[in-house]
Amino acid sequence: MRPDHTLRLENVTIGELEQVSLTIASAEVVCLSGISGSGKSRLLRAVADLEDHGGRVFLGDIEQSQIAAHEWRRRVMLVPSESQWWSERVGDHFPDKAEVSGLSELGFDRQVMAWSVSRLSSGEKQRLALLRALAAAPQALLLDEPTANLDPETTETVERWLGSEIRERNMPVIWVAHDAGQIRRLADRAFYLNGHVLEAR
């Protein structure tokens, strides 16, 4: 039997957002949209435990506060819309001895690990941020507009690759997206943040 990685939000309250309850099954993709400032990113930050918040979050039967914060974040991985690169080479940002899968699917070869981060384009950064997140073997994904800097063709490549990884790794996913077409292609369920209330679409 596959391990249960259901992501469950119970009355999560952060900033203007109040009492958000949501259950995302393993391998389910929930898309989240809403005007900027409606609190989408902050909701993801609460789930990743990056900000003080009310309510409870569970991954399977483990509650957020039960395990060390860094261990929770490694399991419930947030990929921000603007990824940061703090070291000189791309490879320095990947977990040690990690099996990096998906390089060729996203248009890279192994050489990319030796690249200097200063020559990366914003689109390359965005794809590499996804690769390095998955290399840490998370059990749930929180994606904040992961294709915002990509052209339509690359966007669909990334969607196809992420979709198969999500199914294969059995991860629940909250995906912040704005493009109606993308939401239609990806979402098992979609929600719209309207005036700090979560509305099903």
Partner: peptide, 15 residues
């Protein structure tokens, strides 16, 4: 460097 620090935390690094 707050954005960098937070991104490192997101990757599961300790403070």
């Amino acid at each position: 460097q707050r954005a960098v620090i937070e991104n490192r935390l997101m990757m599961g690094q300790t403070w």
